[in-house]
Design a binder for these strands. Structure first.
Lengths: 195, 195, 195, 195
DNA sequence: AATGAATGAGAGTTCATTCAT
DNA sequence: AATGAATGAACTCTCATTCAT
C-alpha cells in the first residue's frame, strides 16, 4: 500500500531507521534495501530524500549533532563552572549509554560509531571550554593547559567508559585530579541519579 | 614474469602493502586487485596466503601489534617509573607519527585505523601499567585510580595528538598533572629528540 | 534500453532460458552472464528474481514438474487402465522427445538432466500407479509386484528410449510382457500418432 | 617429505582417491588440491600423471569399467543362462552396494555417478546379452525382444535398487516375470548370500 | 618423480543507483 | 510523494593449470 507523509517526517524516519541499522550492523553491511524494508517503503523513496547513501550518513551525523548540542545547551545553564562540567559529563555519558552499540564497537564495522563518538566528543569539548571561559569561578582551576586537559579528559573518559569502567566515583575522581579541582568537589556526581 | 619468494617474505610483503593501502584509502575502498597490482602479483596469490580479505586484516593487526610490543619492550628497560613512562610515550607518539593516516581519520573509512589505534592504546596501557607496578619509585605517584588515569591519559593524549596538538611541552605538562607527578619531572620530554 | 515486465512473466522467461541453456551446455558450464545476455537483461536482474544459481535450478525443476503433472493429469482421464497407461507413456515419451538434450546426456554435464529425468520418472510412476489402482479393470493385471514392476518399466523404458530404441512396437511389447498384459492389448501404441 | 613410488602405483592411488572424493562430493566440488592433500602429494604431481582434471575423470571411469568387466567375466562362467543371469545380477547389485554414494545420488553433484551407473549398466547389458546368446538353454526364454527387455530390466532394476527396494525376492520375481522365466526359477536368488 | 608458489581468467554475487510509471 | 523492476560496475573469491626448482 502507498502511504504519504509529511516530507520532514518521512525524512526523519529514514534518518532514525538508518541510524539504528548502521549502529547495529555497520554502514557497509547495511543496504539501502534493508532500510527501505524496515520502513516498509520503496527503495526509490530513500533516493527521493537523499541523493546518496553517503549523504544519508552525513544527515544522520548532523541530526545526531543537533540533538547533542541541544542537550548540552540545557546542561550548561548552571551557575558555577563545576556545575556546568557536571552537567556536561552527565549528558556525555547519558548519550553514550543510550547508544549501546558504542559499547560493542569491536563486533561491527566501527566506522559510523567512530564518526559519532568523535563528533560527540568534539561538541562536548566545545561546551566544556565555554563552561570554563564564561564563568566567573573559572579561576578556581589550577592547571597548566586547561583546554588541552579538557580534550584529553573527554576523549579519554569516553574511552574508559566504553571499556566498561562506568563507576561515577571513578569518573569524578579522574576529573577532579585531571582538572586540579578540589577533591570531591564534583560529588555527588550526576550519574548517581540515573544509574 | 614469474617471481618466486620465500613464503614468509611474500606473506609479509602482502601484509605491508595491504596495511599501507588500507590506511590510505580505507579497508572497504581498497580492493584485493589493487593490493595485487601494487605488488605486481596475481590476485590469486593473495588468497593463497590469506583465506579472505578479513583474515588479511587480522594478520595486519597482529603484525602491527607485534611490532608495537617489541618496541615497547625495549622502551621499558629503564630504571625509574618516570623514565619508563617517558619511553612509552616516546614510542607511542612515534608510532602515531609514522602512520600519518591516523591523522586523516575523517577522510577515509576509519575502521582499520580505529582498530589499530585501539590495539596500540591497549598495548601501551599494559606496558605503562607494568611500568608503574614494577618500579621501586612507583610510590612517588600521588593519585587515586592510577590504572584508570593511565587509560584516560593514553587514549586522551592519543586523540589530542591526532587533533594536531603535538607540542612536547604540552604533553609533558598534561602527563605530569594527570598522574600527579612533580612539575617538569618529565622534562626534557623525549619527543624533542625526534621532531 | 530498459524494458519492464510483469514479474511473473520475467521470472518465467528466466526459467525457460536457463532451462534451455542448462540442457544444452550443462549447469556448470552455463554462466549467469550467459543467461542474462541471452535475455538481453542485466545480470543483476537474475538475482532479483532468484537468490542464487542453485535456487534457479530448483525453480526450473519445479516448473518442469508442474508442466509434466498437468499433462499427465489430462492423459489419465481415460476409462480403462490400459488406456490410461497408453496415455501416460505417450506423454512420457513426448516429453523425453521434446527435451532432446536428454538424448545427449553423455556430452554435457548430466546433472540437470539426471534430476529432470528422475523427477519425470517419479511423477510418471505415481500416475501409472494411480492408473492401476483407480480402475475397475485393474484386476486384469496378472503380476506379482505391480508397483515395483512399474518402476522398473518406466525407468528402464526411459533409458531404452534414450539409447535410441524408439520403435513403438517394441515399447508396446515390452510393456505388455512386463505388466503381464495380453499381447497387443496396447496396440495401436499412441506414439504412432506423433512420430 | 618426498616419497617416490612406482608410476603405476602412484597413478592408481590418484585414481582411487579421486574416485572416492568425486563420489562423496561431486566432481565439481572436489578440487585438485583436495585430491593432492588427501594423498599428501603436491598438486603438480596430479598433473604429471594426468593432463587435466577431465582426463582424470576419464581414467576413473575406465578403471572402474575394467574392474566391472573382470568381475562379470568371472560371473558368466556358469552353465545355464539362468545361472549366468543370476551371477550377473549378483555382481551388478554388489557393485551398486559397494558404492554407497550411488544411493545418495540426490545429495551431491550426480554427474560422476550418472556416468558410472550408465557405464555399469551398459557393461552388464553386454554380458547379459552374451549370456542369452552363448547358452544352449537360451531358448527357454519365451519373450518377444529379449535384448531390449534386458536393457529395460537392467536399467530399471538398478534404479529400483537405488530407490531403496533391495529385497532379493522382489528382484527375482521382477526378473522372472520380465524375461518370461518360470516362477521361482531364479530362487534362491544370490543376494541371499551376501546380505 | 616430485614440489608448491604463482598465475589468470572468470565465476557468482552484491548493491548503490536510476527511471518509467 | 511513492513505487519497484531494472541496471551495471565492481567486488570477493575459486581453481584448473603452469613452471622453475
Amino acid at each position: 500500500m502507498r502511504v504519504s507523509k509529511e516530507p520532514a517526517v518521512r525524512r526523519q524516519e529514514i534518518i532514525n531507521t538508518a541510524h539504528m541499522l548502521f549502529e547495529r550492523q555497520g554502514i557497509h553491511k547495511t543496504t539501502v534495501t534493508q532500510i527501505a524494508d524496515e520502513l516498509s517503503i520503496a527503495k526509490g523513496l530513500v533516493y527521493y530524500y537523499f541523493r546518496s547513501k553517503d549523504e544519508l550518513v552525513d544527515a544522520i551525523i548532523d541530526s545526531f549533532s543537533l540533538e547533542v548540542s541541544s542537550q548540552l545547551e540545557t546542561a550548561i545553564q548552571m551557575e558555577t563552572a563545576t556545575d556546568k562540567l557536571k552537567g556536561i559529563f552527565h549528558v556525555y555519558f547519558k548519550i553514550i549509554t543510550s547508544h549501546p552499540m558504542l559499547l560493542n564497537i569491536k563486533s561491527c564495522d566501527p566506522s559510523l560509531l567512530s564518526l559519532i563518538k568523535e563528533r560527540l566528543s568534539e561538541i562536548a569539548c566545545q561546551y566544556a571550554l565555554r563552561a570554563l571561559k564564561d564563568t566567573e569561578d573559572a579561576n578556581t582551576l589550577n592547571i597548566a593547559f586547561p583546554e588541552h586537559m579538557l580534550r584529553v579528559l573527554i576523549y579519554g573518559l569516553g574511552d574508559l567508559y566504553l571499556e566498561g569502567i562506568q563507576d561515577p566515583v571513578i569518573h569524578a575522581a579522574v576529573i577532579e585530579q585531571t582538572l586540579g579541582l578540589k577533591k570531591e568537589s564534583l560529588m555527588p556526581f550526576p550519574e548517581d541519579d540515573i544509574l
